[in-house]
Design a binder for these strands. Structure first.
Lengths: 216, 216
DNA sequence: GCTGAACTTCTTGTATACAAAATGATTGAC
DNA sequence: GTCAATCATTTTGTATACAAGAAGTTCAGC
């Protein structure tokens, strides 16, 4: 793999884990030293991150970490919910029996992780579940766009899932999704996924509380 | 503006106008000579285009022009239709009277361009119309994503609109959109925009015919 | 004491030089 | 004559050097 790509991943990781705070300027020299490379691959990495929206590139000024605020987060979740709903609607018509089994297996692993209280494993399996739905939409472009957004929102989903009882509720929603897909009911699958992802009611407050705690 | 950005725009232009055909390798040296700069800004431009999906970057091999095939085009239009439908659904509730007037004015300019047979002006005004709808969704993230996709599909919309009578039909659909938005009818606005953008029935054949002609 | 302008310094943007890898050609063996 | 292996060439990826612009500082003037 190109150094520039691995560097991009590592910077992304550092931003998402909070090592770089909102508004921080990412100095090319410092990053080059940190990774033991020259500025060239660092620049490529930063430009790539700028395109993904994780940082902002101000010409001749530098690149700055740009954490989404509450408004932008709500906006992104609103879009994500509709994208997932679309995946569900299409998948309900196109999904294969084998994929349905994959979903059930992913759900079983989710439930096991939940039982063990293993949050990390839960998040990983949860992501796997959603990626299967994306793929089974039968629309490769849609699947890749959905994956991109999912990845971008992943850390914020985690914030939201920290609230008491949310993980169990999330599990139940997954099963409703599988039921609707198995029944081939496009509108029910769409509604189940939209409701699962949308940030509304209690979930809104959970997310805001998570944001405030993360800001500390 | 940075040289790298202007170069990216120019390469993009060259790809969309067909100067670079599908599968062509974009040589950094040649491009650097062509634009009278070094390889550095050319590389930045190519990496940027790779992220937007216009070219494919094969590590250690080079970047290759990657025109979407029929399947990928249909997939992208399917997603675009749903994104526009979502914009319409939200805009129906949130649009301002001033924006409605903007839409009517854009439509009037579209009609004027159609009357003059000025296809370029028509495309420009058509894009303006859609961008207003995106903006009035009240969701800034959605608007920017919609704009990105619109821009990516723009040249193929043109192919499709070449078919006899399609431009007049497109105009009529715009007016149905405005009517639904003015009435605050979210579902009708969504359906009108979905139908306007979706590639189905006759439009599918128009697009394929345009693709074949463009391939020559 | 404060404001403003020039200067210094620091950082980004671009050019060039070098290293490594992939492709293609050439030569030798079968 | 064909196939394979090695070598040369070409091209990407990275490092370094240089140029230009922006921000902060200092000094002069009011």
């Amino acid at each position: 793999m190109r150094r520039a790509d691995t560097i991009a991943s590592e910077i992304e990781e550092a931003i998402l884990t909070g090592e770089f705070a909102d508004g921080d300027r990412l100095d090319e020299h410092r990053l080059a030293d940190r990774f033991g490379v020259s500025r060239t691959p660092v620049r490529e990495a930063l430009l790539k991150l700028a395109q993904s929206g994780l940082v902002e590139h101000a010409p001749r000024r530098g690149v700055f970490v740009r954490h989404p605020g509450p408004v932008e987060l709500i906006e992104m979740f609103e879009v994500m919910a509709e994208i997932e709903a679309l995946c569900g609607r299409l998948a309900a018509r196109r999904i294969s029996d084998a994929a349905l089994d994959e979903l059930r297996a992913a759900n079983a692993r989710c439930r096991a992780a939940l039982g063990r209280g293993d949050a990390d494993a839960y998040y990983a399996e949860n992501e796997g579940f959603h990626r299967i739905v994306y793929r089974e939409s039968g629309n490769g472009f849609l699947a890749s766009e959905a994956g991109r957004l999912h990845r971008r929102l992943q850390p914020f989903r985690r914030l939201q899932l920290r609230a008491r009882g949310r993980m169990a509720q999330s599990m139940a929603e997954h099963e409703a999704v599988v039921d609707a897909l198995a029944a081939g009911d496009a509108e029910r699958a769409a509604a189940a996924l939209r409701g699962h992802v949308a940030v509304q009611g209690e979930k809104f407050h959970d997310l805001m509380a998570g944001l405030r705690r993360a800001a500390l």
